[in-house]
Amino acid sequence: MAAGGGSDLSGRAIASGLESVVGQTISVENLEGGGGAVGYAAFMGDEGDASYLLATETALVNLPLTEDVPFTWRSFTPIMKVGQDSTIMVVPTSASFETCADVVDAARSGQVRVAVSGGVTGNDAIQFGLIEQDQDVEFQRVPYESGGEVIAALLGGHVDVSLTNPSEVMGQLEAGDLKPLCVIAEERYEYPELADIPTTVEQGINVTFSQFRGIIAPGGISDEAKAYWIDASRTYVESDAFKEYMSTNYMQTDPLFGDDFASYLETYEADLKAGLES
C-alpha cells in the first residue's frame, strides 16, 4: 500500500486504535507494488506469526480472481472488517457531464478518457469494466500509480473522468474544483455532505461496488492468538477513535469479526466473480 492512500490511512488508524487497546506499540510498514500483490505475497512469509497484522481491502479478493498470484483470502486469518465505502465518479466542475449516464452516453458516441489506478485489475478497472459490460460501451483507460496522481491528472485535464473514495476527494469537492456525478452503489450515502449524490442504479446503470477495509493476520496462527486480536478489535470499534476514523473518512460502519468476516469475504468473492464473468 502506498503512503497516503486509503489503505495506508486505514492501516495507521487501526494500528493507533489497537495500540490503545493492547498497550503495545504497533509499527506500520508500507509495502508497495502490484496493486497490493507485493504486500500480500510478502505477508505469506509471516505464516503462523501472530505479531503481524495487515491492513486489507478489496484487492485481497480481486487480485486472486484476476491475476496469477500465490494467495487467496483463505491464505490468511480474517480478523476484522471495519466497514466499507462506495466509489464516487467525479469530473472537473467545468465539464459538461452532469450525471454518470452522461458519461456513458458520451462513450457511445466518442472517446471518454477515464483514469485507472491500481493496475488493470484494480478497483477502478473493475468498476469501469462492470459499467462497460452493463451499458455496452468502451472507455479509453489511462493508467496511473496512485489516487493522488489520478486527481492531479483530472484537474490538469489529462483525463475526463475518475473514480475515487470520498475521503480522497472531499477537499476538491468542497472547494468546487470537482463535481460528483454518482455513487457506484444501490443506496446513497447518509452523510449530509454526500447525501445529494445520486446512485448509479438511480441513473439506470445496474452496477454497484463497495470497497471493504479491515485487518487480517497471517495464516496458521493459533486459536488463542486469533481470539486475542478479535477481542482487541471488538474493543477498538467501541472507542471514540474508531468512530472518528469512520466519520472523518466517510466510511459506512459495518464491523465484522473472525468467522463472520470470513463469511463476508466468501460472499464478496462469489459476487465479484459473477460480475467479472457476466
Rank of each mutant, 00 (worst) to 15 (best):
M1P: 10
A2W: 15
A2Y: 14
G4T: 01
G4V: 00
G4H: 01
G5W: 09
G6F: 12
G11R: 13
R12N: 09
A13Y: 10
A13K: 12
E19T: 01
E19M: 05
V21W: 13
V22D: 06
Q24S: 15
Q24P: 05
I26D: 03
I26L: 04
V28A: 12
V28W: 09
E29F: 01
E29G: 02
N30G: 05
N30L: 11
N30I: 12
E32V: 12
G33V: 05
G33S: 07
G34W: 14
G34F: 13
G35T: 09
G35Q: 10
G39K: 00
A41V: 12
G45R: 14
D46I: 07
E47T: 05
E47Y: 15
G48W: 01
T56S: 15
E57Y: 12
E57R: 03
P64N: 01
D68T: 00
D68P: 00
F71K: 04
T72D: 08
W73G: 12
S75P: 08
T77W: 01
P78S: 02
I79A: 00
I79C: 01
V82M: 13
V82S: 06
G83E: 08
S86N: 15
I88V: 09
S94Q: 13
S96A: 15
F97T: 11
F97G: 12
V104L: 07
D105C: 04
R108G: 13
Q111Y: 05
V114R: 09
S117P: 09
G118D: 08
G119T: 11
T121F: 14
I126P: 05
G129I: 13
D136V: 11
D136P: 09
D136M: 11
E138F: 13
R141S: 14
V142F: 10
V142N: 11
S146G: 05
E149S: 06
G157V: 02
G157F: 04
V161T: 10
N165L: 08
P166Y: 01
S167I: 07
S167P: 04
E168H: 07
V169A: 11
G171C: 08
Q172W: 03
L173G: 04
E174N: 03
E174Y: 00
A175F: 00
D177F: 10
K179A: 06
K179D: 06
C182Q: 04
A185C: 08
A185T: 02
A185P: 07
A185W: 03
P192L: 05
E193V: 07
A195W: 08
D196H: 08
D196I: 00
D196Y: 00
D196A: 06
T199I: 02
T200F: 08
V201K: 15
V201I: 15
V201H: 15
E202F: 08
G204E: 08
I205A: 04
V207E: 01
V207G: 04
F209K: 02
F212I: 09
I216H: 10
P218C: 01
G219I: 05
G220P: 02
S222H: 03
A225P: 01
A225F: 04
K226V: 01
Y228W: 08
A232I: 11
A232V: 09
R234C: 03
T235P: 07
Y236D: 03
A241T: 11
K243M: 10
E244W: 10
Y245T: 05
T248M: 14
Y250W: 10
G258S: 02
G258N: 00
D260E: 14
D260V: 04
L265M: 02
E266N: 08
Y268V: 06
E269N: 11
D271L: 10
L272K: 00
L276G: 03
E277N: 13
S278A: 14
S278G: 12
